[in-house]
Amino acid sequence: MPMIFGIPVQALMGQLLVGLINGSFYALLSLGLAVIFGLLRVINFAHGAQYMLGAFVALLVQTWLGLNYWFALILAPLIVGAFGALVERSMLSRLYKLDHLYGLLFTFGLALTLEGLFRWQFGASGQPYAPPPALTGGVNLGFMFLPLYRGWVVVASLVICLAVWALIEKTRLGATLRAATENPVMVQSFGINVPMLLTLTYALGAGLAALAGVLAAPIYQVSPLMGSNIIIVVFAVVVVGGMGSIMGAIVTGYLLGIAEGLTKVFYPEASNIVIFVIMAIVLILRPAGLFGKEA
């Protein structure tokens, strides 16, 4: 059996794939966080709960309405995005003039409330959610076996991340959003409805979290705790990438997922802490993050 650094290629590639899968979720979730922080200056602690909501919407529309995975992939972001818009318009928007800490505390409370409600209703254990029939099975690449669903997750997350990056950085809507972040009063004086833009931005971030939740449902099972399990790592990714940096969130999400996967091969004991060690080093050497702008 071929070896690399004394490790069988199949084991190395297997962990690389696991790292890439985790990285896909880190990238998707940290992208939503970066969009919300970059444009609203809100540290959205409810992001993990919105990810969990997405997975539950997929499970519930299947159980109650018989709608399959592909419908869930469209419905969950719309439902959770609409819920996010309602939360932003009715509650979060009242906190913009206060210190950022209030937004963090509010979203933290919202996350705990949502998680508590779902634990009360559905229990803490995970519930299985089958992948769509078209994506079951896998292909033998010679050096490793690639499950089709996991390959789909990597490709889908990459496409979504690049599409959102292009929306923010390369379109007139994105330019308006960036300008509204810099000087909202000036943008309003041009005749642009900035409060509505902020609501839609929060809805987009929440919708992205829900989309990640639907993609994750067949891999990790659907559980009220799935959001709180991943959100701390995702915050570490955002810090390493640079708070509010869209490209930083995407690139760092994938790189840290891969770093975590490779650590499982070479030094498994450190795999749970490697991301936080990297975060600490980055904070010391470059506090604004790898892609962030120094103040």
Binding site: R172, A175, A179, E182, F190, G191, I192
Partner: peptide, 14 residues
């Protein structure tokens, strides 16, 4: 706006 080019600044107001 610092994050926008000259042309993006020009095209920003509707």
């Amino acid at each position: 706006f610092a994050t926008l080019s000259v042309e993006e600044n020009l095209l920003l107001p509707p």
